[in-house]
């Protein structure tokens, strides 16, 4: 190892942590605002599928060694959630921690708490780990209703049958030729995390695929 490299390694790691939310003069805008702000479609009385965006949430990618007790303890201390097992998700209130890969998890929660949660994780964790704020890079869609599973059956190659995809499971797979992290929140309630740049495409795909099931756009209440 050269002297320069040794010095660089000896330096304490500098991590740029910043508040990524714009101040009030610049309103935050979701990648689907052009769809969700002008909802002109009629709302069905008894919709088979509901689709809405859970916009501007906190998305933090968390990486570390699942086998390390310190890492697991730190994550639990900061988030209040235990590290989920393979293809599982733990949820507590607004926060959800989903398994993505053997050394990677996705933490989602209220949009205005990204910085606070990141600071808290960095406070609790030590050693070899990474916390990355992806909030601006992806968005969350919600699909619910008795026919929501049929929409997913048309859109992705993964087996979403009850026996293969129980509540609480989370899977990253192909959705409409794009990619999504699909989580089953409830019996008829699904959460899709998609890339920001594909959000418009996925939205249009889901709207089209849901037409035959009496689609209602927008949040249920």
């Amino acid at each position: 190892m050269s002297e320069a490299v040794k010095e660089a390694v000896a330096e304490p790691a500098l991590v740029a942590i910043m508040e990524q939310l714009p101040k009030t003069e610049v309103p935050a805008r979701s990648p689907l605002a052009h769809h969700t702000e002008v909802l002109s479609r009629p709302t069905h009385e008894n919709p088979g599928v509901r689709l809405w965006e859970n916009a501007l949430r906190t998305h933090l990618a968390l990486r570390g060694d699942a086998g390390s007790a310190d890492f697991a303890r730190g994550v639990e201390a900061a988030t209040g959630l235990a590290l989920p097992e393979r293809l599982q998700c733990h949820q507590s209130g607004e926060w959800a921690l989903s398994w993505v890969a053997p050394d990677e998890w996705l933490l989602t929660g209220p949009g205005d708490q990204a910085l606070a949660m990141e600071m808290s994780l960095r406070e609790e964790l030590d050693g070899h780990y990474a916390v990355i704020n992806l909030s601006g890079g992806q968005t969350m869609l919600r699909l619910s209703g008795p026919k929501a599973r049929l929409v997913l059956m048309k859109s992705c190659p993964y087996d979403v049958h009850d026996r293969h995809f129980p509540v609480g499971k989370v899977v990253t797979t192909v959705l409409a030729k794009s990619q999504a992290t699909i989580r089953r929140v409830g019996e008829e309630d699904w959460e899709l995390v998609v890339r920001r740049s594909f959000a418009d495409y996925v939205w249009r795909w889901l709207v089209d695929a849901s037409q035959e099931y009496r689609l209602s756009l927008g949040h249920p209440e």
Binding site: R86, L87, A101, P102, P157, Y158, T173, V174
Partner: peptide, 10 residues
Amino acid sequence: YCDEHREEEE
């Protein structure tokens, strides 16, 4: 790693 069978397109 996922301990599951998945489609080739993944």
